Simulated assay, not measured.
Amino acid sequence: MSCFFPVAESPQNHQSLFYANDLSQYSVLCDFDGTISEKDVTDTLLNHFGNEKCALLEQQWQEGIIGSRECMHQQIANIQASKAELDSVLAQIKIDPAFSEFISFAQSRNLNVHIVSDGLDYAIQSILKRYNLNFLPVFANRLLHNQQQDWALDFPYANDRCLKASGNCKCQHRRKLTGFQKIFYVGDGTSDFCVADKVDMVFAKDKLIDFCQQQRIAYYPIKNFGDVTAILPELLKAPTENSCLIPA
Rank of each mutant, 00 (worst) to 15 (best):
G119K: 02
K164R: 12
C194S: 12
L128T: 00
I115W: 02
F180C: 13
G187S: 12
G189T: 08
N159W: 02
Q147Y: 15
I95D: 03
L90N: 04
I183F: 04
L143F: 02
S191M: 08
A196K: 08
A158C: 09
L177S: 14
Q107N: 14
D121Q: 11
P137N: 05
Q181C: 14
I115A: 04
F155W: 06
Q181G: 14
I95T: 11
N168T: 15
H173W: 08
L111A: 06
V195Y: 04
R130K: 15
L177G: 13
R161E: 13
N141H: 02
K170E: 12
K129H: 07
Q181F: 09
A158W: 06
H173N: 10
L133P: 04
K164L: 14
G179C: 12
L133C: 08
S117T: 01
M201N: 12
K94E: 13
V113C: 11
S100C: 13
N110G: 10
D206I: 11
Q125D: 11
Y122G: 02
L143G: 00
N112H: 13
V186L: 07
I95P: 04
G167H: 01
N168C: 15
F139G: 01
Q148C: 14
D188A: 11
S100F: 07
P137T: 04
C169Y: 09
G189M: 05
Q148A: 13
L153W: 00
L90V: 09
G187H: 02
Y185V: 11
R142T: 06
Q92L: 15
S166C: 14
C171V: 09
